[in-house]
C-alpha cells in the first residue's frame, strides 16, 4: 500500500509537467493575444507592442515556457494581465466561493442520492423507482442554462421567494438537479449489482434482517462507485459551473477561467489549469486509496 501511494506520488511530477506544457502550447497557439482586446482607434498599435514586450510576450515561446516553469517551481505563477494581481491571489479570492457552491451541492446531492438510490434498488421497478428514474433522467436531460433561467423566472420574478443574483439558493438547486441524476443512477446500479452478489445471498440465507443486509453489507460496497464518481467530477469544480456562475452572477472559478481564456490572460489560465490539475490528481489518488481501503480485493502491484 505504501509503495503504491509513493509510486503514484512520483508519477505526479511528469504528469504535471505534461499538463503544463500542453496547456501552455494550447493557449499560446490560439490566435490573438491579450492586448488585442484593447481595440480603440486612439491607441497606437506600437503601444500595444510595447505592452506585450513588458509582459515578455515578444520572447520565443519555449523561453516563455521555461521562464514560467522556473517561476512556477518557486510557486510564483505570475500576475494577471487584467488585474495586475498575483495569480495566486486572484484564484484565492474565487476559490472559496466555488468550494462553497460545490461542497454544498455535493452534500445535498449525497443526502438525496444515497437513500433514493438504495430504495430504488431494493424496490426495483416500484412506482418510487420509476418516478425517480424519470425525475433524475429529466434533470440530466435539461440544458443547465435553460433550467437556471426557468428557476430564476419562477422563483425570483414570479414568486419573489429567492433572489435572482448573488445568493446561494438558486445556483445550488440548479447544480444539484444537474448532478443528482447521474449519481442516483450509479448508486442504484451499484446497489443492484451488490445485492446480486453471492455474499449477500449468503447473508440473506443466514437469516440476517434485511435492514442489516442492506445497510451493513450491501451499501458499504455499493458506495464504491459513488466515491469514484465524486472523484471524477472534481474537474467540474473549475469549469463545469461556469454556466451557473454566469447566470446567477456567482463569483466563482468557472467564470474567472472562461473569461481568462477569452481575454488570453495567460498567467491566469495557467494558474487555474495547474491548480485544478493538482487538486484533481490528488482527488483521484484519494479516491483510489479509499477504494483500496474499502475493497481489499483490489491489488496494485500487478506485475
Amino acid at each position: 500500500m505504501r509503495k503504491f501511494v509513493l509510486n503514484r506520488l512520483l508519477q505526479i511530477i511528469p504528469l504535471l509537467l505534461g499538463i503544463s506544457l500542453l496547456s501552455f502550447l494550447v493557449t499560446r497557439l490560439a490566435p490573438g493575444d491579450p492586448t488585442a482586446l484593447f481595440i480603440d482607434p486612439n491607441i497606437d498599435p506600437l503601444e500595444l507592442a510595447r505592452v506585450r514586450a513588458n509582459w515578455g510576450l515578444d520572447q520565443p515561446i519555449f523561453i516563455q515556457y521555461l521562464v514560467w516553469l522556473k517561476n512556477a517551481l518557486l510557486l510564483d505563477f505570475g500576475r494577471s494581465y487584467t488585474t495586475g494581481l498575483p495569480v495566486i491571489t486572484e484564484i484565492g479570492e474565487r476559490l472559496p466561493m466555488t468550494l462553497l457552491l460545490m461542497i454544498s451541492s455535493f452534500i445535498l446531492t449525497l443526502l438525496i442520492t444515497i437513500p433514493v438510490g438504495v430504495i430504488s434498488a431494493v424496490k426495483k421497478n416500484s412506482w418510487f423507482d420509476n418516478l425517480f428514474t424519470f425525475i433524475s433522467f429529466a434533470g440530466m436531460a435539461i440544458p443547465t442554462f435553460w433550467l437556471g433561467l426557468m428557476l430564476m423566472l419562477v422563483f425570483s420574478v414570479k414568486l419573489h421567494w429567492l433572489p435572482a443574483v448573488g445568493n446561494l439558493a438558486l445556483p445550488l438547486i440548479t447544480m444539484t438537479i444537474g448532478s443528482l441524476a447521474g449519481l442516483t443512477r450509479y448508486q442504484r446500479g451499484a446497489m443492484l449489482e451488490v445485492l446480486n452478489q453471492e455474499y449477500i445471498r449468503v447473508a440473506r440465507a443466514k437469516g440476517l434482517p434485511e435492514r442489516v443486509v442492506i445497510f451493513k453489507h450491501a451499501l458499504r460496497n455499493a458506495l464504491l462507485p459513488t466515491i469514484t464518481i465524486l472523484g471524477l467530477s472534481l474537474p467540474d469544480l473549475f469549469g463545469g459551473a461556469f454556466v451557473i456562475e454566469t447566470i446567477f452572477a456567482w463569483p466563482g472559478m468557472g467564470r474567472l477561467g472562461v473569461q481568462a481564456i477569452f481575454q488570453r490572460n495567460y498567467p491566469t489560465i495557467m494558474g487555474i489549469v495547474m491548480l485544478s490539475a493538482i487538486l484533481i490528481i490528488v482527488g483521484n489518488l484519494l479516491a483510489d486509496i479509499a477504494y483500496a481501503i474499502v475493497d481489499p480485493r483490489i491489488r496494485y502491484e500487478k506485475k
Binding site: L149, V157, A164, V165, G166, I247, F248, A249
Partner: peptide, 17 residues
Amino acid sequence: KMIADDNSQLVALEADE
C-alpha cells in the same frame, strides 16, 4: 453589482435587486 449575463441583469432589475 457585477452581473455579466444580460438576462440575469434584467431579471434582477425586475425583482428589485
